[in-house]
Amino acid sequence: MEWLTAPFEVSFVQRALWGGILVSLICALAGTWVVLRGMAFLGDAMAHGMLPGVALASLLGGNLLIGAALSATAMALGVTAAARTARLSQDTGIGLLFVGMLSLGVIIVSRSQSFAVDLTGFLFGDVLAVQNSHLTQLAVALGLALVVSVVGHRAFVALAFDERKAQTLGLHPRLAQIALLGLLTLAIVASFHVVGTLLVFGLLIAPPAAALPWARRIPLIMIGAAGFGISATFLGLLLSWHLATAAGATIAAVAVLQFLLSTVAAGIRHRFEFGHSS
């Protein structure tokens, strides 16, 4: 028991755990829609699109959260504009924005004297450096994510499964798409302190994907994703403490491992049920 509890008696690990729990809840709300709509590439691009704003804020001594929010918003606007360009596929537009924003971020970071340290922190985060102010910000972000998820649920469902039907039902699919991009932006910006701009993708995608084979209703997928995310945070911090590995990367690795185990278990269950019924 001491092996399990000893790390969490340290104050900065406790804050890291609470930060990871809040991030897991936010990512469960946004990531479920990303998985259901097949927006994984967009989510990855959005996560990398934050880098220029974070790097510029760091270079100028500004607020990293504000820099991340401005950069992610610019990325979201760029994605929306690319989707309206008839002669350019959405994937192509997103890919170009992805590379452009990432390159700009690296160029800005290279202007800093602590290039390697800054870039590592931006990409991989520092969950063990989470402060009480970060927890407050995450709690506010979770509240906003809940409001957007509840208010936009019906429109998001229609958008995920039949965009034309959403239009006929008067659910304003374009507005719903903007709201969904806003929810995704909120999740990514709120989470980068914990796992960085690179690994936030792990908590955004892996837990909902792991929960998907075990739930038929969207709220249940979100609850399952939250459970997977929280357990990945706990196990990741525990392993990181005892193995002396990078905490954010270990959390993301555990989340991906959970997805792989869930997929294998779901496949075994399907074969058993199919064989039993036949």
Rank of each mutant, 00 (worst) to 15 (best):
L51H: 04
L64S: 04
P52H: 10
W33Q: 00
E9I: 02
F8I: 10
H48E: 01
L65E: 09
I21R: 02
W18G: 05
L65I: 00
S58Y: 15
L51A: 03
L17P: 03
L64P: 06
L59H: 02
P52T: 06
R15T: 13
R37P: 11
Q14T: 14
H48L: 03
A28T: 10
L64V: 15
F41G: 08
G61Q: 12
I66M: 14
W18I: 09
G49V: 10
M50H: 11
T32P: 07
A40N: 12
G38I: 10
I21L: 14
R15Q: 09
V10Y: 13
A47S: 02
A55N: 05
G43M: 08
A30W: 01
R15E: 01
V35D: 01
Q14A: 15
L60F: 14
W18S: 04
G49S: 08
L22M: 11
G53Q: 13
G43S: 07
V10W: 12
R15P: 04
A68C: 11
A30I: 04
L17Y: 03
M46Y: 08
G53R: 00
N63G: 02
R15L: 07
F12L: 08
S11G: 04
F8H: 08
S24W: 06
A40C: 06
H48D: 07
L60I: 11
L22Q: 11
G20Q: 05
L51V: 14
V10P: 01
I66R: 08
L59M: 13
L36S: 02
S24D: 04
